[in-house]
Each structure stands twice: as C-alpha cells, then as structure tokens.
Design a protein around this nucleic acid. Structure first.
Length: 556
RNA sequence: UGGGGCGUAGCCAAGUGGUAAGGCAUCGGGUUUUGAUCCCGUGAUCGCAGGUUCGAACCCUGCCGCCCCAGCCA
C-alpha cells in the first residue's frame, strides 16, 4: 500500500478531510500525520463510530502516520472498565490496530491540573461558587448575553487557593467549579465562561480515588490532543463550535503542539438509533438482551449477528465523508452485507417453517447421497454430498392451493425441481380439520436425478428441502428492524417506535446434517445468510439470520 | 431574533466558471438447478429569486428550508 516514509499527497484525495490534510502536508505544516480515535468508555461502539474509526485510522495509514486510541475518561460517574475492554475488542475485530499507542485522558490529569493553575495565574480562569442552577440562570439564552458571575473578578491568588482546596476535598460535590474567563456575551455559548473543572467524588476506573475534581471534556480534549502531538483532530459536526474554545485554550497554554480540528457529519441510519444515550437506555431498560443483541447497531451486535467486519468497512467507505447530514437507508447497509456474504458464504439448505413432503413412488427406507455445489459464485468452493430420502421437509409457503400463474412453486399438478435432487409433482395434500396443510404427497421422476432430465424439459421453479431422516433440528432467530419507523422519535416518543416484532424465534427448523459444526456464516439457499449464535451448541443449534436474500417475488 | 453548519435525482455522493461522475434503490430486458448471483438498459439543470459573465451547480446579493449549541455529558 504505502511505504512508511512516503507521504502520498500526489493522489487525488477521496474527500474534503483528506484534501485538507494533503494541503497541510504540502504547505509544510506537518511532516507526519497523527490522528486519534477518542471514545468515552461509557458504552459500546456502534456503526456510527465505525465512520470515525475508519476515517482516523485509514487517513493515518494512507499517509504513513499513526492513529492513537485514546479513552476520553473524564467523567468517572458514567464510565466503566468493562467498556474499555469491550471497545478494544470491537476495534480489533473491525480490523484496526493501535499497537502501543493506547492513551487515556486521565494520563494527563496532573498536567491538566497544572495548566488549570496556569490559566488562573494569568487571570484567564476563576473559581466560581455559584451552583449549577445559578450558572445556568446567568448563562443567558441563544439571543441574550449572559451575566457575569459575582465571583468572576476574584483575584488569581484567591482562585488558586480555592482551586487547591477543591482538589484537597474541602468542598462538597458541586459546591464550586473552575471556569475559563472568556466572554459572557459571546454569540457562541461555549465561550461564556465554560466550566473547566468540577468536584465529583467518584472512583475513577484508572485513577481510583486520587482525584475528587475532574476536568470537563472541553478542557481535557484539546490539551490531550496536544500532549499526544495529534496533528489532525477529526471529529463530528457538533464540536465545530467548540473549536474556538479549544483554540483559545491552546493559545493560552504552553502546550507542545497545535492540533488542527476538522469536522465531518456523523452517520445516521434508518430504522435504528445511533445515539449513545438511547443505546444505553435500550440496554438498561431491557428492550434488548444486551449490548451484543443482534438487533443492536453496535459492533458487538453486528458481530453476533454475522456481519463481516469487511462489510462494515466497505459500507463506511462507500458513504464518503462530508459535512451534510443525511439519513442513510438501512437497505444500503444490508445490500453491502449481502455483497460480501454472497462471495464468501457456503450454500446450505435449511427449512424454517417445515411441512412434510412424501414422495409416494420413492422406495421406503432408501437414502442416496446427492452432489451439491457449495458456492456457485466461487469455483473453488467445491461440492458436498447431501442425503435424500422419501420423506422431506420443505418450506410451508412453497406450497399454495389454487396458485396463480406466476407462482413457481408447489401446487397440485405443477412440476418443480427439488434443488440438486429430482423433479416432483404434487398430487395431493393432507389437511387437518382446520384446513391447515399438514403433508404434501408427490411423485418424482427418477430420470431427473441431479435436477435435469434427459428430455431436457424445463421446470419453472426450484425449491429447497432437507431429508427428514437426516435433518438436524435448529432454532432460527429472524430479525427485523429494531424500530418500525425510519426516524424513531420523529412523530412521537422514540421508545414507542420500537418494533414489537423485531425478533421472531423459530424453534423447530430443520437443517442439513453438514451444519452440526458450522463456524461461519452460511447461506440457506433461497432464504438468506445465517450465523451460528453464541448460544449455539452441537446438540442445540441456533442460527441468527444475518440478512435475508434479495427477494423480487414479493413484487409481482 | 444570537452563534455555527448544511442544501446536486428516492438514498449516499463527485463536481472548485466551460456546458451534471459513480454507487445503491426503482423500472424494463437477458442468463440462471437459489424468484439469489450475474449482464444490459433506464432518471436530475444542481433549494428559490435576482445579478456578474460569451458562458455558473460552481462568483455576488436576497430569500427559503434543515441540523447543532443555553450539561458542573461527551
């Protein structure tokens, strides 16, 4: 790809971010690129994060630079060690590596504290005794300027003393904060004396009880970037109007580097939610089984569902990087998943909603082995043997009474092909007292073994099947969108848009015997792609439907 | 009504003054032992209105619409 010492600035950049970085490089502003991915360990990574991850890591790799993983762990009240581990697992699974470049904002707590003192000493920050509510009341509104705190003109000496005592634990949580002294009348509310430090007695996953004051994200982020010598701090649009604050801090502090921040729009996907707050609520209120519930848009959920990491990266790359917000169709993502799985997933047969099919003229007790291709799109995938016998399981909706002309499957008198096997004609159906079909009776043409006949006659449909005597029972979990609307919360409370039918567990399904030790994603022919769930065991198979196959029959 | 952004076909998105890439979807058609795959074809004058220019999606002006910001969250 790229040799480490060559900056690839000659190629046409793929997006405006890469374009700007190339310009910075060509202008001699940097001689090496360092980016970073800075998650807060208060939840799992989701596909929206994948956009930032792919951008930050890929840009660095393309330019022979480096990308740091930094946990922005400035709020111990919400952060947890388990998330730190999970985030790293997900990142590795996605295919990115940070080597030894693992950092924490908390690594910088001592430095940050000293820099806070620097600001105070230079009369650029002060300790404020106002309560959170009083600060809010004086912040002003979008159209009215804020009012200065009565403590704003406290001397640096007094603030320094108070700040040290805040650290020393003399004051209650929330009793005092450290604020930057910028401009209470600024149109940019982030510049109206933002809080830099707050008192919070919470045990920190990394620093334990060493501190009872913690820097806010706004104070920690830019300085952490500078300490790590990040050259390009790539983040999402909502931080665009924090940039003036970050720049102000960088200009007023003796930092070792000047990172440049560029912003891009975050990913929005239809029929799901990608906000940390909402995902946390789904997990905590048990609307899903956990962060790795296959319906979740988390990387852990997608992994459990069977989505290959390559498909996620490909999807992200196809979207591009811009500053315009949009809503990407879920079907676009699904299509990308299919594209990858179509190339790689071995084909198998399985019946989700089984109905017995008996071939009346096939010898009882006979079993034969038939040849089946493992993947018609991959010549190297080879063949396998599948057992065939008199009694089979077929899909319930592959039979229909009084079927219309376009129906290409089983109905009395119409000949269809059993995939890789024989031509059969349905001669009779058996129904229960309620009129439900319980069994299909057919006859087969022995000449059609393998799926072709010597006379070359055509058949309009091909259906999948599993030999009843040899089938393995499996539970198959079918997933639908987590929400019933493309934009949850647009018309009402987003929780009300949850799809009550997002999970459909089919407990008695039959799959071909080769599936007892299935490891990766397989395609059940005509149905979709399926992945063994974490709950699956050889004697109790469980498959998750990763995604269905495209289906044009519903459109005629 | 303050500040910061965005607005090119249903969706994503190229385009940076010279006469609208590409992908996905849609709709036709072909191939096919998965109604899958694959192959071919199919759509926009660029939010609106003015202006500058021989010429504008790209420059200027004025509107309109959408998103973000009033956490001691990130």
């Amino acid at each position: 790809m790229t040799d480490n010492n060559t900056l690839r600035t000659d190629e046409t950049p793929r997006d405006f971010i890469r374009e700007k970085i190339a310009a910075d490089l060509n202008a001699g502003l940097n001689d090496r690129i360092v980016t970073r991915f800075p998650p807060e360990p208060n939840g799992y990574l989701h596909i929206g994060h994948a956009k930032s991850i792919c951008l930050n890591f890929s840009v660095a790799e393309e330019l022979g630079g480096a990308c740091n993983l930094r946990f922005d762990d400035t709020n111990p009240a919400r952060e947890d060690e388990s998330f730190i581990r999970a985030i790293q697992d997900d990142l590795r699974w996605l295919g990115f590596n940070w080597g030894a470049r693992l950092f924490y904002a908390s690594d910088n707590f001592d430095q940050l504290y000293e820099w806070a003192r620097t600001l105070i000493g230079n009369n650029l920050a002060y300790v404020d005794d106002l309560s959170a509510e009083e600060i809010r009341e004086r912040r002003g509104t979008l159209t009215e300027p804020g009012q200065p705190s009565p403590y704003r003109d406290r001397t640096p000496e007094e603030s320094l003393d108070l700040f040290a005592r805040m650290r020393g634990g003399e004051f209650d949580d929330g009793a005092k904060v450290l604020r930057a002294k910028i401009d209470m009348a600024s149109g940019n509310i982030n510049l109206r004396d933002p809080v830099l430090y707050r008192i919070m007695r919470a045990s920190h996953p990394r620093t334990g009880d060493t501190w009872c004051i913690y820097p806010t994200y706004d104070f920690a982020h830019g300085q952490s970037d500078a300490i790590e010598h990040i050259t390009h701090s790539l983040c999402t649009l909502e931080f665009e109007d924090h940039r003036p604050l970050y720049d102000w801090l960088i200009e007023n502090l003796p930092v070792p580097a000047r990172p440049r921040q560029y912003e891009f729009s975050r990913l929005n996907l239809g029929y799901t939610v990608l906000s940390k707050r909402r995902l946390i609520q789904l997990v905590e209120d048990d609307h899903v089984t956990g962060w790795d519930d296959p319906r979740m848009p988390t990387l852990a959920g997608l992994r459990r569902r069977g989505v290959p990491p390559e498909a996620i990266r490909d999807f992200i790359n196809r979207l591009g990087i811009t500053k315009s917000d949009g809503l990407v169709e879920m079907s676009y993502f699904e299509n990308t998943i299919r594209e990858h799985l179509n190339q790689t997933a071995p084909r198998r047969m399985g019946v989700i909603d089984p109905i017995k099919l008996v071939i009346e003229n096939y010898p009882e007790g006979k079993t034969e082995e038939l040849d089946a291709t493992n993947n018609p799109t991959d010549a190297h995938a080879g063949m396998r043997k599948i057992p065939f016998s008199r009694e089979l399981w077929v899909e319930r909706d592959d039979y229909m009474d009084d079927a219309p002309k376009k129906f290409r499957r089983l109905t009395i008198g119409r000949e269809v092909r059993l995939r890789f096997a024989y031509y059969v004609i349905c001669t009779n159906v058996i129904k229960d007292p309620d009129g439900n079909v319980t069994e299909l009776r057919c006859t087969y043409d022995p000449e059609s073994r393998g799926g072709d006949t010597p006379d070359g006659r055509k058949v309009r449909g091909t259906i999948h099947w599993v030999s009843a005597a040899n089938a393995k029972t499996a539970e198959i979990r079918l997933y639908d969108h987590l929400f019933t609307t493309e934009e949850p919360g647009k018309e009402r409370d987003w929780i009300e848009d949850l799809n009550p039918n997002s999970l459909n567990v089919c407990e008695t399904c039959y799959v071909e015997p080769t599936l007892v030790d299935a490891q990766g994603v397989v395609q059940f022919e005509r149905l979709g792609y399926f992945f063994p769930d974490a709950d699956s065991a050889p004697n109790a198979l469980v498959f998750n439907r990763t995604v269905s196959l495209r289906d044009s029959k519903s459109k005629d």
